[in-house]
Simulated assay, not measured.
Amino acid sequence: MGEASGRIQGDAHLFPVRVYWEDTDAGGIVYYANYLKFTERARSDMLRLLGIDQRAMLDADDGAMFAVRDVTVEYLSPARLDDDLVVRTRLIALKGATITLEQDVLRAETVLVHTRVRAAFIGLGGGPRRIPPDIRTAMAGLAARDGEEET
């Protein structure tokens, strides 16, 4: 499993993002769909920091993965070329086969984009599966940190 970016602070994963030319339109403003890429990267690194190996889940005999089921996005203010951003991810709900996360893209303390993502745990054939106990424990630990900081 590769090294993860970001850090767990309190009940959130904080993932740094720098805005490059490739992220922007001709006016130097982040293209709307790229926020979804930023939040996807943050979710992947959050799982790594929690000790959840997505590659191992896929490669197992009974391979499985998390797949986005639905996402809502509110665009509040634009990010621009060379901005230093942070994607803050919080676990909102952990159910039998789904997780719900809130992810905010921030510049300093200002929320630029707010997303709510529901991901289902599915087998390689696409059918839902219960989230395994070890993954549930790792994620529940994130929700229960209550201000404890880990770097």
Results as ranks from 00 to 15, higher is better:
Thr72Glu: 10
Ala67Tyr: 15
Glu150Pro: 15
Asp53His: 00
Leu85Asn: 00
Asn34Asp: 00
Arg107Thr: 00
Ala79Arg: 05
Asp82His: 12
Val87Thr: 01
Gly126Asn: 06
Gly6Phe: 01
Gly96Tyr: 08
Gly147Val: 02
Ala42Tyr: 05
Arg130Leu: 12
Lys37Arg: 08
Asp61Ala: 12
Val117Gly: 03
Arg107Val: 00
Leu14Thr: 04
Leu47Ser: 02
Pro16Arg: 02
Val111Glu: 01
Val73Leu: 06
Gly27Asn: 07
Val86Thr: 07
Ala140Pro: 15
Leu50Asn: 04
Asp25Thr: 12
Tyr35Trp: 03
Glu150Asp: 14
Ala144Ile: 10
His13Gly: 04
Lys95Asn: 13
Asp82Gly: 04
Ile52Glu: 08
Asn34Trp: 03
Arg107Lys: 02
Gly28Thr: 02
Met65Gln: 14
Leu81Thr: 10
Glu22Cys: 04
Tyr75Gln: 10
Tyr31Ile: 07
Ile122Phe: 09
Thr98Cys: 15
Val17His: 02
Val86Tyr: 07
Tyr20Gln: 03
Ile99Leu: 09
Arg118Ser: 15
Val105Trp: 00
Asp59Pro: 04
Arg88Thr: 00
Ala93Phe: 14
Leu106Pro: 04
Gly147Asn: 09
Ser44Asp: 09
Leu14Met: 08
Ala93Pro: 14
Gly27Asp: 09
Pro132Lys: 10
Ala120Lys: 04
Asn34Gln: 00
Ile8Tyr: 00
Arg43Leu: 08
Gln9Ile: 14
Glu148Cys: 08
Asp23Ile: 01
Ala119Asn: 14
Arg118Asn: 14
Ile99Tyr: 14
Asp53Ala: 05
Pro78Phe: 07
Glu3Ile: 11
Val105Asn: 03
Gly123Trp: 08
Leu76Arg: 12
Arg145Cys: 11
Leu124His: 08
Arg80Asp: 13
Leu112Ser: 00
Lys95Tyr: 15
Phe66Lys: 14
Leu106Phe: 09
Pro16Trp: 06
Thr151Arg: 14
Arg48Gln: 10
Leu142Thr: 09
Asp104Arg: 00
Glu3Lys: 15
Val68Tyr: 08
Gln103Lys: 04
Ser44Val: 10
Leu14His: 11
Ala64Leu: 08
Phe121Ala: 07
Glu40His: 10
Gly96Thr: 07
Ala26Asp: 14
Lys37Ala: 07
Ala60Cys: 02
Ala140Phe: 11
Leu36Ser: 04
Leu36Asp: 06
Asp104Val: 00
Thr115Gly: 01
Thr89His: 03
Asp25Tyr: 13
Met57Trp: 03
